[in-house]
């Protein structure tokens, strides 16, 4: 991964905007921002963003590659689409945020243990392995993401919710051991493999 990062640094030495345009989903829209800030103001998670959307766009133009790609900001996006709905220039901001996050991750620059990023990993692992999501396992993995004692604390904090879910049969402890799988696991695996091929193709094409 860091090789790829180095390669990209070399390739776009002087121009991070070009790198974004070439490699980030919907990255070609970044230049269209006129810095009105309506996206940043419209984001329900706004206060938790280190750099709001419109600032990220300006930072991209200013060549602040490391700061942008290693930022946790774009991981904050919950896909509510408020920003897209309001952007006077029609920028697909939500998609750009996801694109940036995904690109950062590909380059290995995404912040370590960023919960959204981590959640993505766990979710992916689960679905890739079983063809469906094991909610209990995802929950437990997330609770214990930052160590055992923190995990216990997290679990205790949500215990009433857990009990209620078990009572209404929305969650079963037995799921933790194996759990449901989809019927055609090898089919899923094939599908994902093909998808990965497409993605690689896409990235190469995009990258040029």
């Amino acid at each position: 991964m860091s090789d790829m990062n180095q390669a990209m640094v070399q390739k776009y030495r002087s121009n991070f905007l070009k790198e974004v345009e070439a490699n980030v989903e919907e990255g070609t829209w970044v230049k269209m921002c006129m810095q009105c800030g309506v996206c940043s103001g419209s984001c329900p998670l706004g206060p938790h963003w280190e750099h709001p959307q419109q600032e990220l766009f300006m930072m991209i133009r200013a060549g602040k590659r490391e700061e942008v790609l290693s930022s946790s900001s774009m991981w904050m996006c919950t896909s509510c689409y408020n920003c897209i709905a309001r952007c006077p220039r029609g920028l697909p901001i939500t998609h750009i945020m996801h694109g940036l996050a995904s690109y950062a991750k590909r380059l290995g620059l995404a912040p370590k243990n960023q919960p959204t990023s981590k959640f993505g990993d766990i979710f992916w692992d689960s679905i890739a392995k079983n063809g469906r999501v094991n909610e209990l396992k995802i929950g437990v993995s997330l609770y214990f993401m930052n160590g055992f004692s923190q995990g216990i604390k997290n679990a205790l904090a949500s215990r009433e919710l857990g009990m209620a879910m078990m009572k209404t049969k929305r969650m079963s402890p037995t799921e933790y051991f194996g759990g449901h799988k989809c019927k055609d696991l090898s089919g899923i695996a094939k599908m994902l493999k093909k998808a990965k091929e497409f993605e690689a193709e896409h990235i190469t094409k995009f990258g040029e």
Binding site: C36, S40, G41, P88
Partner: peptide, 26 residues
Amino acid sequence: SKVANIVAGSGDNVVLKGVDTEGYNR
């Protein structure tokens, strides 16, 4: 700043929400 939205404030006042983009001030 392009104001993002307006919500009810105290009494008949309203609250403007947004980001001052000259240096990111929410």
